[in-house]
């Protein structure tokens, strides 16, 4: 198989982004992309456009019972065996922070929230309601929110934290802050260029959580969140 050169790649980059290249051509293009940053950027740009095209397809109401059938499928054989932590990844906070607030419904009289999807009218079945606590991360060196922390109080209980400090690499530790200030380490995330995320089910007993904290490996406080 012959590797494409930059000129050949440019001529077929649109097809590659659209998934319209034949197998051998695709393999030849990918060989070139392995080491050509300029062509990688070209294809990345066109792939973003291709994704945007897919996003144009209008929503359609699925058949009655679709949601139930899908959830049953997810709970089918093997579902209970699958249990893993989320890998640490970076996020663009300004994109998801706005979305994070959308769809939240306050639990009357409680300290937490419930998950409910308010983005579309649901089927007649009751909306899933899972109580959780949520707070946005702040840091003395940054103005505004730099991440978010969730604790879901359903079964299983699980925690999700994400942060974007702007810079810095390495392992950072994730804590929940209990009433009275006691810290409970629940996991760690791998910062890459200051951003990372972590989430997992929590087995330890957790009571009266008031917030979350992310610390560097040497104990410096990187970000704190106070739950609503």
């Amino acid at each position: 198989m012959t590797e494409m050169d930059c000129q050949q790649l440019r001529e077929c980059s649109a097809e590659l982004a659209l998934g319209a290249l034949s197998g051998p051509e695709r393999a030849s293009a990918l060989m070139h992309l392995e080491h050509c940053l300029e062509c990688q950027n070209e294809v990345k740009s066109l792939s973003t456009l291709s994704d945007a095209l897919c996003d144009l397809v209008p929503s359609m109401e699925p058949p009655v019972g679709f949601e139930t059938r899908v959830v049953a499928r997810l709970r089918g054989p093997g579902a209970s065996r699958r249990h893993w932590p989320v890998q640490g990844l970076g996020l663009a906070p300004r994109r998801w922070l706005a979305a994070a607030v959308a769809g939240l419904v306050l639990v009357a009289g409680g300290a937490g929230w419930v998950i409910g999807d308010t983005s579309r009218a649901g089927p007649p079945s009751p909306a899933p309601r899972v109580a959780f606590s949520w707070g946005s991360f702040r840091s003395p060196g940054h103005s505004g929110d730099i991440g978010e922390a969730f604790v879901s109080w359903g079964r299983p209980r699980w925690v999700f934290m994400t942060v974007d400090l702007g810079r810095g690499d390495g392992i950072a530790n994730c804590f929940l802050v209990e009433k009275g200030g006691h810290l409970l380490q629940v996991g760690s995330l791998d910062l890459s260029h200051g951003s990372g995320y972590w989430g997992a089910a929590v087995q330890a007993p957790v009571w009266q959580v008031t917030g979350a904290r992310i610390e560097s490996a040497d104990g410096r406080i990187l970000a704190t969140a106070t739950f609503s």
């Binding site: 949601e67 249990h83 998950i115 699980w158």
Partner: peptide, 14 residues
């Protein structure tokens, strides 16, 4: 990823 059934339903619904 942590098999929260409530979240699974919310994800599908969304």
């Amino acid at each position: 990823t942590v098999n929260d059934p409530g979240v699974a339903t919310a994800f599908v619904r969304r």
